[in-house]
Design a protein around this nucleic acid. Sequence first.
RNA 1: GCCCCGGUAGUGUAGCGGCCUAUCAUGCGGGCCUGUCGAGCCCGCGACCCGGGUUCAAAUCCCGGCCGGGGCGCCA
Length: 427
Amino acid sequence: MFRTCTTQDAKNFDGKEVKVCGWVHDIRVLGRIAFIILRDRYGFAQLTLIKSIIGKENFKKYTKLTRESVICARGKVQLTEQAKLGFEILPEEINVLSVASAPLPLGVADKVQADMETRIENRFLDLRKPEVLAVFRVRSALLQGMRDTLIAHKFIEVHTPKIVATATEGGTELFPVKYFEKDAYLNQSPQLYKQILMGAGFDRVFEIAPAFRAEEHNTTRHLNEFISIDAELSFANDEDAMQILEEAIQNAIRYAVEREGDALELLGMKWEVPEIPFRRVTYDEALELLSGEVDMDWGEDFSTEALKVLGEKINDFYYITRWPLETKPFYVMPDGDKALAFDLMYRDKELSSGAQRNHNYESLVQNMRAKGLNPDNFEFYLNAFRYGMPPHAGWGLGLERLVMIITGVKNIRECVIFPRDRTRLVP
RNA sequence: GCCCCGGUAGUGUAGCGGCCUAUCAUGCGGGCCUGUCGAGCCCGCGACCCGGGUUCAAAUCCCGGCCGGGGCGCCA
């Protein structure tokens, strides 16, 4: 057995012998006493080495360990006020499982802050930092909160193809891939497929999977590969979809707060579980709120500047509803010159967008043409609307956007273990 | 796609024509120190992205390349 407990559990074994494994975070040598700070995913443990007890040879050997080497220590646990953590381990034996070379390309225990570039290049080291790990602990909790909510509402989790023949919605650039003798693309969204599943009678589906966009954007809130949480429900309108979404967000935050509260604390974030329903602001009302401050015409999408101003006015989660039809894709349900579509915002950040969908074949084809798309390319999709398609609605949410908001991290790249941006393909 | 900015020890930086044999911190190596908590003190190691140009003189100015960061647009 490598270990009998983690650093977190060690304090429960006062006076008993334990074996703990982890990385050498730091070593402080003070003459005849030395401290090795051992780190694992759960926290830290202090190994206290007293020269007169463990012997000159061992003392020298152990205090010469390099930072970030992996070791296993066997020794007695002692609760003591003298140790900051309230306990220490007096090792009788330390096995070196893996020696770390020095110097490190990125110091885990260093006080100096590293650049994003250096951090990503050496991500395996960067991720050893408790505050970096914390982002992924929160991410996991948020994801589980979303998933549990959807499952509780009878959604079936599905997976749709990521290698596709046509663009989903037109507009955004796609990554081409060679598919044997054919041209194919990485899918930008599961939109069309989850709608087909409504026609298939699945009633409610959700998918948590990567989406790819070949836009050459260079910002702190865009990725070329991100995780999209998509939900679609039948016999439902835009309001029904919004209710599911806000409940999922509420639970996601509840999970993060309840299960990873110390991770949030480490990140300096304090969250209350938000109250629902979230505020609904129509596009027209939002325009009204901006009047006099931001110059924009009806029918335009909000600029980054406009969203900043809106975000200052509504300092919370909120929906922008009933958008001008021309701002939204062909598959949304029209209502006069408006669309039964919504965006979920947190301050100035777009988190999710959704809509009631147009389930009428003729109207759908007409809207497609109006957007300059050729219906012939979407036969696989349109066919599902010809033989019985229920009214339905749904949304798609960028997981990393949510993680960014909840963790307070400034750059979306930090929300992905190995981010894919305009130039980064490795690691 | 358009537009800004930046590349100096392992890491983060100062310097922005001659005071540079390049600053500071951290790290690494060595020494001292029986309880540290960002331990402390002493000594040492270690760097100007690449190519061209201007100049008596280039880390510093100009051009090109490579690499990176950011803004807008677009979106999640």
